[in-house]
Amino acid sequence: MIEWLLAPFVYDFMQRAFIAALIVGGLCSTLGTYVVLRKLSFIGDGLAHASFAGIVIAYLRGGSFWIGAAIATIVTALGIGFVHRRANVSLDTAIGVLFTAAFALGVFLMSRSSRATLDLQSFLFGSILGVSRDDLFVVLGLGLVVALVIGALWRPLLYTSFDPVVAQAAGIRAGFIDYVLLVILALTIIVSVQLVGIVLVAALLVTPAAAAAQLTQRFVPMMLLSCAFGIVSTIGGLYASYELHASSGATIVLLATVIFFAALTASVSRRPRRVP
């Protein structure tokens, strides 16, 4: 049994993949609590796609992947916030416009390039098995920054998630908190996209938190459960993909989805009155 459990770890690249999966799974699903409660699922998806433009530009110019993705994603995140606040455009419309634009820009630039085309598949589902040592340090560093920001601002983040109007009247700068959340969301997405791909990031930001919301009616337990589900999905999915010789990203998403439906079933059977 132990031998079976440790089998994947004989490879360096597998060790790195498991560490990356642990950090990304925990980070995305923890932040996902805010994403789900603030109904920002579409934003997570949008920012993940937007990062693609930055990745392509960085690739074509031979620049740093991280810097390219960071610029594209943060600019899109702030753009979404700005367009929504200043113009008379609803949030989902602002996101719909901006993220498709950023994604299209990436595809446009790639299609005009004479250099060998990027492997689109690896950006959709990631290449967690190709994580380098340097990547791990960047992930760890950005992960710590995000954790620190959540730690410092968790009260205003919670208050403005629940009741932004009254929070602002009480002197909490709700607009500033919104922008901070968008930026740390963008950072998390940038970190995660290279490792696990666009589709997986969007799933990890929503599915574990949505599963946790089925099982508890308190905020802190929801965040802890979400984090646990995220880590179980990424680690478990990585194991399963190793055993099944399947795409790691897709296996992780499918495992997270199985957890979600299990939670849904558990909550429905526990609260039959709630079923419409």
């Binding site: 409660l37 208050y159 629940f162 009480a170 002197g171 308190r218």
Partner: peptide, 22 residues
């Protein structure tokens, strides 16, 4: 009109406690 999400995972005490957050 409190325009809040009534499914938000907070108890009565949690909401009252938010009063101290600022």
């Amino acid at each position: 009109i409190e325009d809040v999400d009534w499914k938000f995972p907070v108890s009565v005490r949690d909401v009252v406690t938010m009063g101290r957050y600022p």
